[in-house]
């Protein structure tokens, strides 16, 4: 009788590990597939709350500026968070939604003030002070004919873009 333990044919050893029994393999495979299926189903369900259709109103709207509007005086179209300026025969528009946390800025001596956290913007929308990370975005303006202009709140243009209408 040898005192050395020879790896017997049926016994696993470090050098010759036993192959995984068929039942274990099938069990693990079935469990992983079930877990995978549950995971994918959960992912699919989690996709549902991500709005597929944005229900907000159309971003484009028409507005007619009053003839008498002087250059540099803000004009606020009814029901929109937008301000429109005339500059000679050119016009430009900016969003009045504060880039900090979404409050509506109001005209002030220096330009625009945000009531929520004290951000201040120059008349051209650049940040003067406060927590706003960016200036007020300039919006696309096009002539819509008949003295009206078409403003698109969904299209941001580089600051300084003025449109002749």
């Amino acid at each position: 009788m040898s005192t050395h333990s020879e790896p017997s044919p049926g016994k696993p050893s470090r050098l010759d590990p036993e192959a995984m029994p068929r039942r274990d393999f099938l069990g693990i495979a079935a469990a992983s597939m079930a877990a995978g299926a549950c995971g994918f189903a959960a992912l699919g369900a989690a996709k549902l709350p991500k709005a597929a259709v944005l229900p907000s109103a159309a971003k484009k709207f028409k507005v007619t500026l009053p003839e008498s509007l002087p250059s540099g005086t803000p004009f606020f179209p009814e029901g929109r968070s937008v301000v429109v300026f005339k500059d000679g025969d050119r016009v430009f528009a900016m969003s009045t939604v504060c880039t900090h946390l979404g409050c509506i800025v109001k005209p002030a001596a220096m330009g625009f003030d945000c009531p929520c956290h004290g951000s201040q913007f120059a008349p051209d929308g650049t940040v003067l002070r406060g927590p706003a990370p960016k200036g007020l975005p300039w919006l696309s303006v096009r002539s819509a004919g008949g003295g009206a202009i078409l403003i698109d709140e969904g299209t941001v243009v580089p600051p300084g873009t003025k449109e002749t209408v």
């Binding site: 991500k50 709005a51 944005l54 229900p55 907000s56």
Partner: peptide, 16 residues
């Protein structure tokens, strides 16, 4: 943007 969209179901605070 994703967090806001998931929270509001829209890009602004409304019925959704």
């Amino acid at each position: 943007g994703l967090q806001k969209l998931l929270l509001l179901g829209s890009d602004e605070v409304g019925a959704e």
